Amino acid sequence: MKPLKVAREQQIAVFGESGSGKTVLLSSFYGTAQEPVVADEGLYDIVANDAAQGLRLHQNYLGMKNTGTTPLQTRLSGNRYVFSIKRRGGPVGKSKKPAAEELRLIWHDYPGEWFEEDPATEKEQRLRVETFRSLLGSDVAVLLVDGQRLLDHTGEEERYLKALVTNYRAHLSRLQEELMPDGKRLVRFPRIWLFGLSKADLLPAMDATAFRDLLVEKVGQEIAHLQEELAGFIEEPEAFSLGEDFVLLSSARFEPGKIDVGKQVGVRLILPMAAVLPFSRHVRWAKALRNGSKVANDLMRSAGPLLALIVAKLKLPGPLKLVTVALPFIFDTVFEHSREKIQDVHDAAVAKHDFLTAVLTGFELELRQAVEDRVLQKSVK
């Protein structure tokens, strides 16, 4: 049997210090998707390709939901989780062919202890480098800021934030030499780095704009230094953003003896951010870079299939969609469409059982709503 065709694969890397909530976030993301009420409402199922991983994540989630038990922290083990986003109900319409696996999310979980502890052995150092190398295919990376730690440092937030950003920078600097032994910069590298406020439920008065403003005020210079450090990894560093996107993330509401997993913020944005957020940035950057550069070609290989899909479904004038090479130059026209137009395309795709279009336009609508709700602050570039 031939493997199922994947029309769109996206990778996301999540970084955070020990205890910042990475395991809880991942468990909530997967466990919530298994709830019957959530599954019945959606167009797709989220399936863990590794059954054992999926069982463990679901168990973590049920422990939080039913007994108020938080998952055990994972230590010193970089993990890669692969999720298939499969259309619900199998084949649709008149087709008798098996439904293709049309979306896939690869989630890289980078151990928090590695930002806080030096490697004990050469073997552990090699593991760190290999783990980081494995996530270089990600387009999106999330740097977590721990809401509990912010709360603990009320009035002196810069003490925590400066240490956090400095730790991120120092660790990545140590990896750079081993990832680039010949000094040759990388073409494939996460080029969109968001800051995510984990445990955002502990700071209910803080929206995404206030989160951004706090970081800029307290550690703007440190973020600029981190940006310089990461830009040093890559060819064409102008095709890179850090500190331009901010998201609130709360896996549940934690109360004494109880965890309310029905109270979440931003968890449902993981898929839309991974699948759609890179698209707009990649096309803009590809347009701005010199024609034929390795980076421009790589960016368009990533964005091209989705761009072609959206162009077709939005029914742009014929001349605008005749030549594939022209696709980067019509991007602005595509996304000048209003929410109402995108909603119309989404509704029509649902009615026609056009799975990929329905899901991706749904993701775009979710991102727009998150911006309105001030859960997400997107780059204006």
Rank of each mutant, 00 (worst) to 15 (best):
V276P: 04
A252W: 05
R268V: 10
R284M: 07
A312D: 15
L271Q: 14
L248D: 01
L249N: 03
P272W: 07
L289H: 02
P272R: 07
F254R: 15
E255C: 08
G266F: 00
R281P: 05
R290N: 14
L299C: 00
R281I: 05
H282R: 15
P305Y: 04
L269V: 05
R281Y: 13
M273S: 05
V276W: 11
I310R: 12
A275G: 08
F279L: 15
K287S: 09
V295C: 04
L271M: 12
F279R: 08
V311I: 15
D260A: 04
G304A: 08
G257R: 09
S250D: 01
L299R: 00
M273Q: 07
G292F: 03
P272D: 06
R268C: 10
V261W: 01
A296P: 06
A286G: 01
I270Q: 05
L248E: 02
G266E: 00
R290I: 11
M300Q: 01
A274G: 05
L277Y: 07
A288V: 11
L271A: 15
H282F: 12
L307P: 03
D260W: 03
R268Q: 14
L306T: 14
L249V: 06
G262T: 10
A303C: 04
A296E: 06
A288L: 14
S251F: 03
V267I: 15
A308M: 11
S293W: 04
N297M: 12
K258R: 15
A308L: 12
L277P: 01
K258S: 12
S302Y: 03
A312E: 14
M300G: 00
S250A: 14
A274Q: 05
S250H: 01
A275D: 11
R253D: 11
I270H: 04
K258L: 14
S251I: 01
P305W: 03
V311F: 09
R268P: 09
A303H: 02
L306F: 09
K287W: 07
A275C: 14
M273H: 04
V311K: 12
K287G: 06
V261K: 01
A303M: 02
S280P: 07
V267E: 00
M300K: 00
I310F: 15
L248K: 01
D298P: 05
N291Y: 14
N291R: 14
L271G: 10
P256D: 08
